[in-house]
Nucleic acid binder design. Sequence first.
DNA 1: ACCTGAACACCGTTCAAGT
DNA 2: ACCTGAACACCGTTCAAGT
Lengths: 208, 208
Amino acid sequence: MARSALTREEVLEAASALVRRHGPTGLTMRGLAAELGTAVTSIYWHVGNRERLLDALVERTVQEMGAVRPAGRTPAERIVSVARTLRREIRARPHLIAMVHERGLTERMFLPAQRALVDEVHAAGLRGARAADAVRAVQFQIVGFLLVERNRERSPAQSPGEGELWDPGAAPGDPALARALARPADPERLFLLSVRALTEALLAGPDR
Amino acid sequence: MARSALTREEVLEAASALVRRHGPTGLTMRGLAAELGTAVTSIYWHVGNRERLLDALVERTVQEMGAVRPAGRTPAERIVSVARTLRREIRARPHLIAMVHERGLTERMFLPAQRALVDEVHAAGLRGARAADAVRAVQFQIVGFLLVERNRERSPAQSPGEGELWDPGAAPGDPALARALARPADPERLFLLSVRALTEALLAGPDR
DNA sequence: ACCTGAACACCGTTCAAGT
DNA sequence: ACCTGAACACCGTTCAAGT
């Protein structure tokens, strides 16, 4: 049957599906045209060129990640809940998030979360420049952890990896440490431990 | 004049120079051949294909980043010195480091630093699983911070950015916080603050 | 063992021409 | 306003043929 008029939205939706399935390299203008049943050149009329098409997909993703709903009874719990929600959402669209990273828009994507963090440090009694420092420290911690985690997940089997490097005897006098470092890191546990340690110190403050 | 026999090392050196100057997309097999004054296909004989050529460049970079020399009087100072050295080296070769990131080899690149951190937490009196947790928490912090920073540096002008979002009145009852968040973050200061807060809490421990 | 040119199967993009 | 096919200037890779 004859297709109805092509819309920009249709192009974006099909492109987004291709990226979710096969990553950005799996999105070719010719492949996208085939998917849509149109000529390659029609796509150019609607979205300009490939780079601007990718930009539009990234912009969409940033919008989608803007919803933040802290949960928990204490500020610390709510900070952790924000981080967990973000991690879950990010894992649902790894390719699109990678594109957000590549364009350096991770920070902007996290601005709604920053607002939530301000509420939490306020609830914890911090004000002014010290509150701002605490917010940013936690924000960098959350974003940084997500970036590290994504990095680890994409890692192929590494040699030498931690497992091989920390064989018994690598740490003279501390075999328990060698055993612990030979095991793979548990990101969830490590994250809780780190965020709690950091927030504890930040909320306690340097002058107490 | 007639060129001497092409070597793998020559190919890697020329490729590395192209990447340092123009990034990975600036490295084309045809362009590299032109640079070397050989046929495109000769390169394939020496390095297999483009992907394996990039892999070789990344491997080189990982080796180069393996040198870590902690400096300072206290464990905390030495931890910070390690982080600073790494940041400086990384900034000298942004494109190559980006490729290390993309291949998920950031962690492996940091293994020598991990060893140095073990020495420092030992010097601070920690042992066993708790020492391992502290090392990994600090390591994730350092790596995460570098990733965040790199992300920020690549960011184009963002709108809305923090500056616009935190105009006076965005944080009712805390104008000083709004002012602080409207200013761009000072990564060096924030890093020192964060690492110190984290290590302080980690070395003090949960049971003290 | 090392190098070569020709050929293949892809790309993204432009443009003049259609309706 | 929207769509089209043809053409251009690139890619990475393979392969048979050279020395």
